[in-house]
């Protein structure tokens, strides 16, 4: 009996976690909204070329007015 309960519990948890994982990947709207809030708080932080690490590639970011800026560098997630 115990074995059956544990098996059901295990399958339920696995499926649940997989579902959460897939949902988070496919639809990140909620995360986006939260990120937007966090980014709005950090609006005054210096951005620009500082975000582009110097190597021979091309870095694209948006200025505070939402205009794309193009410069040499590597846009890293640091």
């Amino acid at each position: 009996m115990k074995k059956i309960i544990f098996s059901i519990l295990f399958i339920t948890i696995t499926l649940g976690l997989t579902l959460v994982n897939v949902t988070l990947r496919k639809d990140d709207t909620n995360i986006d909204i939260k990120l937007k809030n966090i980014e709005a708080l950090g609006e005054n932080e210096p951005g620009g070329p500082d975000q582009c690490y110097v190597i021979g590639t091309l870095c694209i970011y948006y200025d505070t007015q939402g205009n794309p800026i193009f410069c040499p560098g590597l846009a890293l997630d640091i």
């Binding site: 990140d28 986006d32 975000q51 021979g56 948006y62 200025d63 846009a75």
Partner: peptide, 23 residues
Amino acid sequence: KATVKSTRRKPVAYSTDNLLGFL
């Protein structure tokens, strides 16, 4: 290997573990 989000000021940011490609 990158984070891509249109809402960011830096919409594409490569992971520090991403392997750089063709130089």
